[in-house]
Design a protein around this nucleic acid. Structure first.
Length: 364
DNA sequence: AATAGAAGGACCC
DNA sequence: AACCAGGGTCCTTCTTCA
């Protein structure tokens, strides 16, 4: 029944969430300028107003949560805290550090494929895959000017022009990317014939057997893996995260991107100190909306901060969701075999071999 | 009372 | 000068039907 009311004052909070996420290589003054340009070019569009409407609904939901939060009595909070602590002990007790998982993420995949086939795009060329209406992937050179995936091309063009450079567009060519994805997969198979293809530029590999068989560390396997991918594709780089769970491996794959790797040691202490300072948004499954809820209702920005608010977390969310978040905060998620079929096994549904990252309800 | 869809979100690349 | 994707999976909630 709430009438959707959009106040003028709500605008900044919504545009500030657009295309401003941190990537490297920009000063604060640049970022402010980029934000301003994106806002100026977006503010009158239908798309922007739709976005504001959604943000407003989320705001209402947050306000309702806040109210509930304030009503929680001390006793109630205490019992939620005990429940949370029991759950944490249980989850921690079942922590599985036995497997070595890798998450492989191709660097600027579409752009890298294009550059590989067109020498005029090599080096530090400022270009984007996509068109003036929508950008799919930006070259690293273009990212320095604030160009991002899912950004309208005409805005990207303006960002570059303001910086005195011109942005070149390259049309998307899916068959090309699938071809390179298949080449990369021939490399993945050398390490894990049953790897999980999460998307065309991302995969999970269980390196446990490979490491045991060759008597090498996860770090060494990651180095070999990156080398094999480079060779199989004749020039594409990727970033690799190594950890005892797929969730941690995925987060780790982002740490030294591009063309790098990062290992989270398979020890409880190392895992906890790796995940603690992580912004909540890094957790797969926590997106724009959930991040806002957690920050604006509980005041939590990082995993450690949310862990400190575990009682309220349990009070406000369903048991299922609370459990899901708590395990993520401990660095747990996706240790065991994946619930669905893997590469090389007969497909149940036939068409799509791709799986999402982690069907939740799965045993942790 | 249990359940199977459908619809609507959130989230991912 | 105009101009803001499209492919998915999964979860929650609502509705319906035997």
């Amino acid at each position: 029944m709430a009438t959707v009311r959009i106040s003028a004052a709500a605008a900044p909070s919504s545009f500030s969430t657009l295309f401003t996420h941190e990537k490297a290589g920009m000063s604060n003054v640049d970022k402010e300028k980029i934000k301003r340009i994106v806002y100026e070019m977006s503010k009158d569009s239908a798309h922007f107003k739709e976005q504001e409407r959604r943000d407003q609904r989320v705001t209402e939901h947050i306000n309702a949560c806040r109210e509930r939060h304030q009503r929680i009595g001390a006793d109630e909070l205490k019992s939620h805290e005990q429940r949370a602590d029991r759950l944490l002990v249980e989850l921690d007790g079942h922590r599985n550090l036995e497997r070595t998982w890798a998450c492989v993420d191709m660097d600027a995949f579409f752009a890298a494929c294009e550059a590989l086939e067109d020498p005029s795009l090599r080096g530090d060329v400022v270009f984007a895959v996509g068109g003036t209406s929508m950008i799919s992937t930006a070259s690293y050179a273009a990212r320095r000017y604030g160009v991002r995936s899912a950004m309208p091309g005409f805005i990207a063009q303006r960002l570059c022009r303001e910086a005195g450079v011109s942005l070149r567009f390259v049309p998307v060519d899916f068959p090309k990317y699938l071809k390179f994805a298949e080449l990369a997969r021939t490399a993945f198979r050398l390490f894990d014939p049953h790897f999980i293809a999460a998307s065309c530029d991302e995969a999970f590999l269980d390196l446990t057997d490979y490491c045991a068989h060759h008597a090498i560390s996860g770090a060494e396997a990651a180095t070999r893996l990156r080398h094999q991918v480079l060779e199989a594709t004749r020039g594409l780089t990727c970033s690799v995260g190594i950890a005892s769970s797929r969730m941690l491996a995925k987060i780790a794959s982002d740490v030294n991107k591009p063309n790098g790797q990062y290992v989270v040691p398979a020890e409880r202490e190392a895992i906890v100190s790796f995940i603690g300072p992580m912004p909540l948004r890094k957790i797969p499954g926590i997106g724009r909306v959930t991040e806002r809820v957690l920050r604006e209702v509980l005041g939590a920005e990082t995993c450690a901060e949310l862990l400190a608010k575990r009682a309220a977390l349990c009070a406000l969310f369903t048991a299922r969701v609370a459990r899901e978040h708590l395990s993520a905060l401990l660095g747990i998620g996706g240790e065991g075999p994946p619930p669905l079929q893997r590469e090389g096994e007969p497909s149940q549904k036939g068409v799509s071999q791709e799986r999402t990252f982690e069907p939740t309800g799965a045993p942790l």
